[in-house]
């Protein structure tokens, strides 16, 4: 049995990598992928704790997270496509409409 801390550390690093990707990449698609990384890190945490506590409710929660992630990816990608249609770019540096 791998100690639960190991999973937690992996999840933390995965989350951090996701955050770095969200912060630093210009491509909206990569940013969306990074968000998926973060969601997966959360899922891993849930499952690790669930396993440790022998509680299968955690898995139900993880299932819900997967569903939400799917919805998020669908809508996020739709937005990227919509933006691309209007502005011909997926470059986040150029998507500063909130400033104006």
């Amino acid at each position: 049995m791998i100690p639960v801390d190991h999973y937690l550390l992996v999840a933390g690093l995965l989350f951090a990598i996701g955050v770095v990707g969200v912060l630093l990449r210009r491509n909206a698609l990569i940013v969306l992928m990074s968000i998926e990384l973060m969601l997966n890190a959360a899922n891993l945490t849930l499952l690790a704790f669930g396993r440790a506590r022998g509680d299968s409710n955690f898995q139900a929660l993880a299932f819900l997270v997967v569903a939400v992630a799917a919805a998020e990816a669908a809508v996020g990608l739709a937005i990227v496509v919509g933006i691309f249609r209007n502005r011909h770019t997926t470059n986040l540096d150029e998507l500063t409409l909130m400033k104006h």
Partner: peptide, 11 residues
């Protein structure tokens, strides 16, 4: 500070 840049907001 109001750059309109989501990434900076997130930072």
């Amino acid at each position: 500070l109001q750059s309109g840049d989501v990434q900076r907001y997130m930072a």
